[in-house]
Write a protein that binds this DNA or RNA. Structure first.
Lengths: 343, 343
DNA sequence: CTGAAAGCGCTTACAG
DNA sequence: CTGAAAGCGCTTACAG
C-alpha cells in the first residue's frame, strides 16, 4: 500500500494537481465546492503530504538536531524532555545524538546534522571539546545554533546557562556557614566551562571568608559514565592525603554519592566528620542516606528555554530578519539536606 | 552561504550533473580523471548531498522514529542509548517522541512519524494504551515496526522482551527462600502486559510453594512519574491493612525505594521485619541504604536488539523479501542485596 | 566514457 | 476560479 499522492487525488477528481494542493492549503482562490471535495477525498484516502517533497521545495525540514554528551543522566534526560515537549508544541521533531563526551564524535554528528539539513541545532558540549571549528562552521552556514549548560563562551551564538560560579559560591558558603574550616573540592575535568566556573566559585567563597585556598584539597574527577567510581576513588585518596578536612563541595551529585559511600565504608560520619554538598539535585540525592545537600539545576526548564531561543532564531532566519544572540541565565537554588545538617 | 549543489559543481567543471552524481558515487562508467576532479572540487566546496532530494528519489529517509513513555527514567534512557548507538552504526538517525503514558499522544505521534515518512518505528507502549488500531495502521502501510518491553501480544510484529513472568517468579521465590511467609505485591497498572505478567509470576510462585494467594496483599501503583510517591502511599496503606507481612515483591525499583523510605520512617526494619525485592535494577538501588535486591533488566541491550530487528525488516522490505516477525527474549537476573539479607 | 531526459511529490508565480 | 509550467536537488535508465 503505497502512500497517496496529490496526483492520485487529482486524477480521481478529474482536476489538476495545482488545485488539489491549493485546496488542501485553503488558498482563497479555490471554490468552496472544490475544497470540500478535495478535503473529503484526502480524508478517506488518508492522504499525508510527503514531507521530503515539501522540504525540498520550502527548504524547511521542521526537524532540529540535539547533541548531548550522555543520555543516561538525570539532568540531561530532563533537558531532553523539556526540548522535545517544547519542540512538539511548535511542530518540530528532534533527532537525538549522543557525543559520549567525545570531541570526534561530536564533530561527526554536526556534519551528519548538516547533511540532513536540520533547521537548527541544540548542543551541550562534550568534556573533550576544546576546539570550536565545527560549531563555527555551522554558524557560517547560517544554521541556527543554541548551546546549553556546557557551553563555550568564545562561540558567538545564543546560550542557556546557569550561573555556575555563583551557585558554587553559594554551596561553598553554606559549608562555611555551618562551621567547616577546611573545605575540599572535587572538581570536574579541566576543559568544560562549568567545571572551571564551579571551581572558581568555590575558591572565591574561601577567599571572601578568610580561608586560605589550598590546591592540594582540589581533586579532579573526569565525570564520565564512571562518575560514581571516581567519587569513591577521590574520597579514598582524600582520606589518605588529609585528616582534617571537614567539608567538601563536589562538582556533581553522582560523584558525591560515590564519595559518601566510600566515606561511610571507612567509618567517616556524614555530616559530623565531613559535610558534603553536591551539584545538580539528581532525584537519587533525596532518597539516599544521609540525604544529600545540593544545588538545584533546572534541566527541564533549560531544555524548554533552549528550544525557545532556537525557535526564535529559525523564525528570524526565515523572515530574513537579523538574528540577535541572547544568553538566558536560569536560577539555581541551594537545597539543604542531611549531609550538611550539623548540631 | 547556501549549500552547494551538484549543478554548481557541474557548471564549474563544465560537465553534466549526471556525471558529477555518478562520479561521487563511484559508478564504474566514469573516467578516473573525471572522478578525481569532481571529488576534489566537492571536497573544497564542502559539498553535502541534500538528503531530502535523495530521499524523494530513493524513498529511503534513513531515519527511524522512537516512541517511549518516559525519557527521565533509568531503564528507558538506557534503551534510548542502545538504540541510537546501534542506529548510528548503520547510518540511521533517530527521532525521539515521548508519549507520557498517554494513548492519545502515542496515536498522534504515530501519525506524525507516518507523515514524516520514517523508514521504521520502535515503540514501547504507554500504560494507557489498550487499543492497537494505530499500530495496525502502521503495519498496513508496510512501515516496519518493532515493539520492546511494553508490548501488546496481540499485535503482529517483531518484539524484544524479557520474560516478566519468570523474572517475577524468581524474585518472589527468593523471598520465599529466605523464609518469608506472607508476601505482598505492589503491582503496576492493569493494562500493560508486563505488569500483568509480573503479577502472574508472583502468584504462581506462591501457589507452587503452598502459600495461599491473598488478593488483599496486592496493591496497585500506577507507576507514572509519581512512582516514588506511590510507593510511599502503598507502604503506608499496607501498614494500616496488615501487621504480619514479611516480604514484598514490588513492580519497579522506584516504587520500592519510595516504600522503603516510608517503612523506615515508621520504624519498620528492612529486611528484618519486611524483606523487599524490586524490579529493573536502577542505579539508585545499589547506593541507597539498605541496598535493594532487584531483577536486572538489560535496557541497553534491549535497545540494541530492537534496532537490529528493525534494521533487518527495513532491509528485507527494500529487497522485497518476505518479512518474518521474531520475538527476542533477553535474559534477566536476580541481584541479591541487603534488602533481602536475613540472618 | 558522457550527458539529455524523466521523474520523485510537492509548491507557487503566472496566464487565462 | 482553474491549470500548465517551472523548479526544488537528486538518481538512473537510456542513448550515443
Amino acid at each position: 500500500m503505497k502512500p497517496v499522492t496529490l496526483k492520485q487525488i487529482a486524477e480521481q477528481l478529474g482536476i489538476s494537481v495545482t488545485t488539489v494542493s491549493k485546496a488542501l492549503k485553503d488558498y482563497p482562490d479555490v471554490s468552496k465546492k472544490t475544497k470540500k471535495l478535495v478535503k473529503q477525498l484526502a480524508e478517506t484516502l488518508n492522504y499525508k503530504p510527503n514531507s521530503f517533497a515539501v522540504t525540498l521545495r520550502t527548504k524547511e525540514s521542521k526537524t532540529i538536531g540535539l547533541i548531548i554528551p550522555e543520555v543516561v543522566h538525570h539532568f540531561f534526560s530532563n533537558v531532553i524532555k523539556g526540548i522535545i515537549a517544547q519542540a512538539e508544541k511548535k511542530g518540530y521533531l528532534v533527532i537525538i545524538l549522543q557525543s559520549n563526551e567525545s570531541y570526534d564524535l561530536e564533530k561527526q554528528q554536526i556534519e551528519l546534522l548538516l547533511s540532513k539539513r536540520v533547521d537548527g541545532v541544540l548542543i551541550s558540549l562534550a568534556n573533550a571539546t576544546g576546539d570550536y571549528k565545527h560549531l563555527n562552521d555551522l554558524i557560517a552556514q547560517e544554521v541556527p545554533l543554541v548551546m546549553f549548560d556546557k557551553i563555550a563562551k568564545i562561540v558567538n551564538c545564543s546560550k542557556v546557562i546557569i550561573n555556575d560560579r555563583k551557585a558554587a559560591y553559594t554551596a561553598t558558603k553554606h559549608l562555611i556557614d555551618i562551621g567547616c574550616k577546611r573545605i575540599a573540592h572535587f572538581r570536574g575535568p579541566l576543559l568544560p566551562q562549568n567545571s572551571i566556573d564551579r571551581f572558581l566559585g568555590y575558591k572565591q567563597a574561601l577567599i571572601d571568608h578568610n580561608i586560605t585556598y589550598d590546591p592540594s584539597l582540589v581533586y579532579i574527577c573526569d565525570c564520565s559514565v564512571k562518575s560514581f567510581e571516581e567519587g569513591k576513588q577521590s574520597a579514598n585518596q582524600l582520606l589518605k592525603d588529609h585528616t582534617n578536612v571537614d567539608g567538601i563541595f563536589i562538582n556533581t551529585d553522582l560523584v558525591a554519592i560515590g564519595a559518601m559511600t566510600e566515606f561511610q565504608k571507612n567509618g567517616v560520619r556524614i555530616p559530623e566528620d565531613i559535610a558534603i554538598v553536591g551539584f545538580s539535585n539528581w532525584f537519587m540525592s533525596s532518597v539516599i542516606s544521609p540525604t544529600l545537600s545540593t544545588i538545584d539545576q533546572p534541566g527541564y526548564q533549560m531544555g524548554k528555554e533552549a528550544f525557545k531561543l532556537l525557535y526564535k532564531e529559525m523564525k528570524s532566519k526565515k523572515q530574513n530578519l537579523p538574528i540577535e544572540y541572547k544568553t538566558v541565565e536560569l536560577e539555581t537554588g541551594l537545597i539543604k539536606r542531611e549531609s550538611t545538617k550539623k548540631n
